[in-house]
Design a binder for these strands. Sequence first.
DNA 1: CTGAAAGCGCTAACAC
DNA 2: GTGTTAGCGCTTTCAG
Lengths: 360, 360
Amino acid sequence: MNGSAIKSDFIEPSSEGHVRRQRRKMQRVTMMDVAKRAGVSSSTVSLYLRRPEAVSPMAGQEIAQAIEALGYVPNLVAGGLAAAGSRVVSVIVPSIRNAFFAETVATLQTELAAEGLQVMLGHSEYSEEDEEALIRTALAWAPAAIVLTGLRHSKAARHLLASASVPVVEMWELGAQAPIDMAVGFCHTAVGATAARHFAQQGFTQLAFLGARLLQDSRAATRAEGFAVEALRLGLPEPQILNHPAPATAEAGAQLLGRVQASLPKLQAVACSNDLVALGVLFECQRRGIAVPGDLAVMGFGDLSFSSTSNPPLTTIRPSGDLIGREVARLIKACTKGNRPPGADRIVDTGHLLVERKSA
Amino acid sequence: MNGSAIKSDFIEPSSEGHVRRQRRKMQRVTMMDVAKRAGVSSSTVSLYLRRPEAVSPMAGQEIAQAIEALGYVPNLVAGGLAAAGSRVVSVIVPSIRNAFFAETVATLQTELAAEGLQVMLGHSEYSEEDEEALIRTALAWAPAAIVLTGLRHSKAARHLLASASVPVVEMWELGAQAPIDMAVGFCHTAVGATAARHFAQQGFTQLAFLGARLLQDSRAATRAEGFAVEALRLGLPEPQILNHPAPATAEAGAQLLGRVQASLPKLQAVACSNDLVALGVLFECQRRGIAVPGDLAVMGFGDLSFSSTSNPPLTTIRPSGDLIGREVARLIKACTKGNRPPGADRIVDTGHLLVERKSA
DNA sequence: CTGAAAGCGCTAACAC
DNA sequence: GTGTTAGCGCTTTCAG
């Protein structure tokens, strides 16, 4: 229990290691070991690690050396227990395969890491039930914060979270209802409306919305609804909303275009729930000899990396996934530092931006 | 920035909670509370949680009820400390924005979650130095396993890992050197060779490799090298390798095509480091009126979701990111269950698959 | 500025 | 089967 692990003077490739570890506790280098070697108490080491300036320079020097010599790695698990709160941030997204969330999670992770916060990742796969289970597990880690996607959660989940008194940030959606605690995102109804308005301004009247997994992805469904409602409000005929049951891919987009062409031959413009879907539409239009934007205007959502380079370049709506990540990180950092943002600042609207290119 | 979309006059939970929590420990429901209410000892509760069948049905019933009534959420941090090893798996990838890794991480997370293992995510951004820091932090969590991308790591990182006696899985690369512990992936040299061979078989002699961030992404560089070496071996002229400093995007592909067209007018076939790059090439070819595969054959890498639908459908090489995720999970599960795979089984080759479509 | 002491909530022998 | 007893490695008062 008190040995120094560094006795093996060089790499000891752990062939035995695992077994040993499983049977008996590893003789890990502890803070106590460092303290002894530095000739101080473990609480001084602890203090040094947290606020080096609060320790005398001499002791600090000694400690630093001991840490180096012993190859000490602090045990955050023990630290978390003692401090009654770990430096973990649990992030739950529908799927990291989705480029939107990948972008946000990437930014979030980088920002949080700079603050010594770890990201624990979970996938709800668009299931409230799975999400609830994930939240339950997340809570078991006494996380510094929990980040959820969207405002829709099971009742039990909301209850769990509300009574856990842990900072919660809901992201990628605003407006549908009041957040549990904090929220960073934008209004999807407004996104749909922006698309409808853009089409209306260009004089199109025959519109459609092409979406994938609309039954699961409530945010995409909200965009579709916002699109339809705004079109109606502008006096246009009701746009048709087509849904593909598979995840949002170019393949789905291509198929949807086929379907909508069959049912609405006079179609003038389509808004897609995702740039990938729009890309598939573009591909299928090329195959069918439909000129974009001449015969058909196409609008995407997401402004993914390929959207500026496609033929034609895709007009789309940018949600700023990285900005969301950055703002979520900001909120969380504030909370862990003890200055929880006041009321209104707990909701940040990242808005959306119409990126006009050539496809619409 | 902070337009408060909804003033949360609704749920107002935890406004005090955080403060209280930070100042004094929360009076969290503990296992002891459950035990008392169920009229048993806490170790019985602990046992029940781990192996319900080892507890008498009556006691089990009582405990289950108490847990329910109290809304008990086990504290995994405490559990991890006591058990000298947390149920965390630290996964470090260059970037989750990259669809390859997103796919693998998604699969991995789902598989691991089923076993009660949590994924902690880190991004190295293709920097060995950042990776090392990430590994150091990961180790601080006494993780059940660490998953790294590729076989290249700083010396210090390798040392850290080897002396930590924690299962390590390196993924997405095989063959460059011996893994630290376990590895799941495929040989990138072979991928490059497959591409070269495919072109050679079709009689092309003027080849090029278009890559992005080749200086950072050593695996992509290895594919490029494998491509060139195989071409040479087959008696073809040395392929030119072009590199774009930005991340792999369609934009980069489009620009690379421009460059390679200028320098190699007789070019017959290009292999790309990534399907996104290939997509950009396809787009640019359309713009320039270059027929694919008529005037130029294009091959991608990754088999991303759009590749089957593009114009023309992209011939590419599929690395099976999800299979990698599944195999990594399998290895880790075996380790946590105490049956560490023997020697040869610690390396699994997931291979690669040439997906012949129309672009080459 | 430093050290001693008291846990954090749970697991894991080991008795009973 | 179930309870008792020790800690896991660290943070955090609280004295000195």
